[in-house]
Design a protein around this nucleic acid. Structure first.
Lengths: 258, 258
DNA sequence: GCAAATTTGTTCGTATGTATT
DNA sequence: CAATACATACGAACAAATTTG
């Protein structure tokens, strides 16, 4: 009878109500019991329809409360090729704040957590060290306008610390000037190039909780390997961005401003 | 009783069987009826578990046949900053073939479909023309080793054709030399820079069918706006890549080869 | 080529648990 | 504590797609 399954028809109908502005952001949808009557369908069917909408990020269900139209988050755009000339990259700790404030939005970053451990395989390969070699790990969560925006973890060779040249890497405090500048001043290691490797995948449980995204949502994961003036990897930074609120720009040549 | 819901436990158990190699790619999972007995759960609960695995891209269900472990697709990596010096970009028609063949894989591209129509708002803005202005649209589907890999649509101002300078844009045939070179030869318009705008979103129905990805999968959508030597937009190219088989690299400075 | 068997897809009804108000 | 709303789980029936005999 139905060309399309009923749950899909219900989902489409609810979606058109959202798109048309009939249902506005933050507004509560009818409860499952009410929708059951409206569409003359079972509760399970209604729930299947709502599941479709949640995986599209259009609605959000809260146990004990109801289902609500999500307010569209104004996406933040990170320029990955920022300041190519100076060697400082887009989305870094040092440039993150200014990129956000340029947009008249309010950045906030969590306390930095520092850890020392054996290099995970993916990191060891990129840093050109062995898997048994130790690395310093600096982790930080970032917010924009109080909304969780990204999780970043940087890995440095432990040798930077054991050589006593860059001891501050192990201190769990924001290095005001940025680690890139700090390493240049302390060790004479200058970041002259980097390579970003961009993937998208489903979020793990931790990321689902922190960002508040559904299990079938999607995150960007960007591995940045930075090299010094000798072409030696000096740092690997892994940043996870929920796809519903992050976009990226890559400039090649000198395109005119937007 | 259950810290974790039962469908999640079942999903986790099946996942560990896949990760451990107990279930190998292309192998059929036990049928829903068999799993129902194995885990002493109802068929619906088993189905919920399988749904989790499909949205992770670990398994694929085929009506009338069964559920199968997906063979992991070897991802293709597109360098977005290819040949920055010459102004030719990564992932373009002209460079797509060579990038793929460098990888010892076999590229294939569908016939090009050409259309003329009013500029969609997103395109008109980027091309710096009005929404009522006409554009030429060149669409192509791309495969690697016979697997659908990307869908690309390029938009050019209709003026390029009406001025009689670049009539071949309207011909539904591959422009061997690449449109970038063609426009340079025919019109003296040289592509000197471009800007890529990278997003990720859920696939539409057409994309689900073409790429064979689930409704809650994820695709990259990259808008490339290319500019000529005067800083005027000459082209907008929109490419859609399924996230399960595509990754991207951005080079800033001159990082050493991989 | 067709009918039967198998397997997943959709839909219903019902019951109970958990979170919030 | 009670009422409300979503989450999980069971069982059942029929439909649709595919394979098998």
């Amino acid at each position: 009878m139905a060309q399309q399954p009923m749950y899909q028809q219900i989902a489409d109908d609810l979606r058109s109500q959202i798109d048309s502005g009939d249902l506005v952001p933050d507004q509560q949808l009818p409860t499952e019991l009410e929708l059951r009557k409206t569409y003359d369908a079972s509760r399970n069917t209604v729930r299947d329809a709502i599941k479709r909408l949640t995986s599209l990020g259009l609605v959000e269900t809260r146990p004990g409360q109801g289902t609500f139209v999500t307010r569209k988050i104004d996406p933040f755009v990170t320029v990955l090729t920022q300041d190519a000339a100076t060697g400082y990259g887009g989305g870094e700790g040092a440039t993150y704040r200014s990129q956000v404030e340029e947009d008249r939005r309010t950045p906030f970053a969590s306390q930095i957590k520092v850890e020392a451990k054996s290099a995970p395989p993916e990191i060891a390969t990129r840093l050109g060290i062995g898997e048994d070699d130790q690395v310093v790990l600096r982790h930080q969560e970032r917010y924009i306008d109080k909304v969780p925006w990204s999780m970043q973890t940087s890995f440095f060779p432990m040798e930077f610390v054991t050589s006593r040249q860059a001891p501050d890497l192990l201190i769990a405090k924001d290095i005001e000037e940025g680690t890139v500048r700090y390493l240049e001043k302390a060790m004479g290691i200058k970041q002259t190039s980097y390579r970003d490797w961009i993937t998208a995948r489903a979020p793990d449980e931790n990321e689902q909780n922190f960002f508040g995204i559904p299990h079938d949502g999607s995150v960007f994961e960007i591995f940045r390997t930075a090299y010094d003036q000798t072409g030696t990897p000096m740092r690997v930074t892994v940043t996870v961005f929920p796809a519903d609120r992050n976009q990226f720009i890559v400039n090649v040549g000198q395109p005119p401003d937007l």
